[in-house]
Design a protein around this nucleic acid. Structure first.
Lengths: 342, 342
DNA sequence: ATGAAAGCGCTAACAA
DNA sequence: TTGTTAGCGCTTTCAT
C-alpha cells in the first residue's frame, strides 16, 4: 500500500498548522506568498494528495460524475458511446472530476440506481444519454434537485430550458449529406429512417426532407422507415429502389441501415441500374461514422463526440460551481466524412 | 437534494444504538433475529444507504475498481473494450463495487494516474487491459502492494504467478478456425497477422500454425505480418494470394485485417480463382467478432467478454476479501461465429 | 496571516 | 446481545 500522507504530515514538515495547509490548497490567496510556496514544496516532496473521502465528508462534494454504460444493443452504434465516454473521462479529469459507471436495463432501474448511488457514493452530477420523449429520469433528477446534463436534447415540448443539454444537430447533418448528393448530380435522393416517434430519427429525416424540398424536389414517397438492423435496411432500400426506379442515392439515419442500403445497392439484382446511369452508381450516406463505415468505405456523418463530452463536463461543472440559474444549451454540427460510397 | 438519512436516524426510529444498526449491516449474525428484522425494516422504510465516504474513512476500503478507457486507436476493435466495460460494471455492481474510469496515453502517465487515484479516491483495486512484455504498470502495482487483475496474461516469462489474470485463449481460437476451414475442404490456409513480438498476435498465429502442421500441411510461407489496418490487410492478402495461388482461405489475427482480406479475396483481379475452384471461394475468418464482422458477414472468433469481466471481478474481489495468497488464472475459449465469409 | 476546535457518518475496540 | 467511546482526514467556524 502507498504510505498515507496526510495534511498533518505536510503541516509538520512545513512547520505550519494543518489549517494553513488546507488554506494553501483551497484558498491560496489568503496565505502569504512565502508560506504558500514552502507548503507547496512540501506537498510535492511528500507526494501529498487530498483524500477525497475526508474532503467529501466535510464539503459534501464527491467530485464524481456518474454515467450509464449501455449493453450494446445492435452493437454497430456502440462505438459512439465508447468514444463519448473516453472524451468525458478526459474532460472530467481536466476539471478535477472522475467518472463513475453504472448500468441499468430501463428507466425504472436507472432511477433506482440513482437512489443507490446518491445514497452511497454521492456523485455530484449525472450525464444522461439516450434521452427520449417524457423521460422520467430527467423529471426524477429535477425533482430531487440533483444536477445533471443530458447528451441529447429534451425531446418533450415545453421542458426546453429546465436543464442544461448538449446535442448534435442531426437535421443539419442530413441536410449537409443531401446537399452533398445534390451537388454530385443526384436528384431523387431517398431516406432510410426509423419509425416516426423517436426524436433523433425524426430530426434527421427532417433535414433531408427540408433540403430536398428547397431544391424543388418533392420528398413524398422517397422515405422508408424500419428498425435499426442491417437486414432491415437492405429490405427497405430494395423496396424503395424497386418502387421508384429514379432513386440514385440514399441518406440513412444510421450506419446500420446504410450498410444494408449499400448491400442492396451493390446487389446483382440491381445491376441493370448501372446501364441506365453508368456514370452514377447508387450512392449511400450513413450516420455516426462508426468503425463499420470506415471498414466498408461508407460515407457517413461524424458526430463531434469529444467536443460534446467536453461541453457536458463544462455545463455540469458550471452548474456545480456557481449558482448558475439556467444555461444555454449546446448544439454541435456533425461533419461529413466522404468515402467511396458517395 | 435527497434528504440525508444517517445511521443515527435509523437507530433512533428503530429504538437501538447506532452501533447495533452498523452490526445489522456488517455483522448480521451477531444481532438478535428480532432486532435485526426491526432494523432492516426501518432501513427499507427510510431508504437508508451506507455512506461510502464515511465508511471508507473508517475501513480504508472505497469499494471502487479503477480501469482505463482507451482512446480507440483504429476504432475497429474499440467495441471489445466497450463490451468488456459493460460486463465489468455489471459484475462489479453485483459484488458491491463500482467502476471508476481514467485515461492515460502510455504506461508512464498511467502510473502517474495510479498515484493520483490512490492518493485521492483510494480505489481498492485496478483492472489492467492491454498487457504487454515487461509491463511496468504491473511491476509498479506489485511494488506498492496494490491489488489488481489483468485482462491479458503476463506475457513476460517467469512472472507467471505474481498476480491474478484472466485471458482468452487466442491460440485455441485460431486453431478452431483453422480446423473449421480444414473440415470445409480447404488445405492451403493462410494467416494474416501482426509483426512478431506482440504476445497476443504470436499466440494467435501459433494456434493456426500448429493446427495446419497437425494436418500435415507446412505453414511456411503461408503467413504475412502487418500493422492492424484494413488497407494493410488487403495488401498483405493480395501479396500472399499472388505468391501462392493455392491459397483458398485466410485466418486473421483481427477483424480489421480480415476485412482487408475480404476485400482482396472479392476483388475483380482475383476473379480467375473462381474458375480454378468455382466451388470454393476464398474464405476469410477474423478475430473479435466486432460489429464490423456482423455488418459485412465475416466469420469471426468471439471472445466471451462478459465471462472475462465477471472473472476479473471475482478474482479481484477474492484478493480484496481474504488473504488469498495466489490465485489460479482464468483462461477462456473464444467461440467461432460462422457467417457467409467461411 | 495563522492556529485551535469541532464535527461530517461511520465502524473497531471495548464496556456493560 | 447491545451501548459507549474514539477517531479516520478534512474544512468551516471562530479566535488569535
Amino acid at each position: 500500500m502507498a504510505d498515507k500522507v496526510t495534511i498533518a504530515d505536510v503541516a509538520r514538515v512545513a512547520g505550519v498548522s494543518r489549517q494553513t495547509v488546507s488554506n494553501v490548497l483551497n484558498t491560496p490567496d489568503v496565505v502569504r506568498e512565502e508560506t504558500r510556496r514552502r507548503v507547496l514544496d512540501v506537498v510535492g516532496e511528500l507526494g501529498y494528495r487530498v483524500n477525497q473521502a475526508a474532503r467529501q465528508m466535510r464539503t459534501g462534494r464527491s467530485r464524481l460524475i456518474a454515467i450509464r454504460i449501455d449493453p450494446d444493443r445492435d452493437g454497430i452504434n456502440g462505438s459512439v458511446l465508447d468514444r463519448f465516454l473516453h472524451g468525458l473521462t478526459d474532460s472530467a479529469a481536466r476539471s478535477g472530476y472522475r467518472v463513475l459507471l453504472y448500468t441499468a436495463d430501463d428507466d425504472r432501474t436507472e432511477i433506482a440506481t440513482f437512489e443507490d448511488l446518491l445514497g452511497a457514493y454521492e456523485p455530484d452530477g449525472f450525464v444522461l444519454t439516450g434521452t427520449h420523449h417524457q423521460d422520467p429520469r430527467a423529471s426524477w433528477l429535477l425533482g430531487k434537485g440533483v444536477p445533471f446534463v443530458t447528451f441529447g436534447r429534451p425531446w418533450g415540448e415545453e421542458s426546453e430550458a429546465r436543464h442544461p443539454w448538449v446535442d448534435v444537430d442531426g437535421a443539419a447533418g442530413t441536410a449537409a449529406a443531401t446537399r452533398h448528393l445534390l451537388d454530385a448530380g443526384h436528384s431523387r435522393i431517398g431516406f432510410l429512417g426509423w419509425p416516426t416517434g423517436s426524436g433523433v430519427g425524426d430530426d434527421r429525416r427532417e433535414g433531408w426532407a427540408r433540403t430536398l424540398a428547397e431544391a424543388g424536389i418533392d420528398p413524398s414517397g422517397l422515405s422508408r422507415a424500419t428498425s435499426d438492423a442491417v437486414a432491415d435496411g437492405e429490405a427497405a432500400a430494395r423496396d424503395l429502389i424497386d418502387s421508384d426506379p429514379g432513386v440514385t442515392a440514399l441518406v440513412c439515419v444510421s450506419d446500420s441501415l446504410a450498410v444494408g442500403g449499400l448491400h442492396a445497392a451493390r446487389s446483382p439484382g440491381l445491376a441493370w441500374r448501372v446501364d441506365t446511369r453508368p456514370d452514377l452508381p447508387i450512392a449511400v450516406i450513413g450516420f455516426d461514422d462508426t468503425p463499420v463505415a470506415k471498414a466498408v468505405g461508407l460515407t457517413s456523418l461524424s458526430q463531434p463526440l469529444k467536443e460534446a463530452a467536453a461541453s457536458c463536463v463544462s455545463l455540469l461543472a458550471r452548474a456545480l460551481d456557481g449558482t448558475q440559474t439556467s444555461q444555454a444549451p449546446v448544439l454541435l454540427e456533425p461533419s461529413l466524412v466522404v468515402r467511396q460510397s458517395a
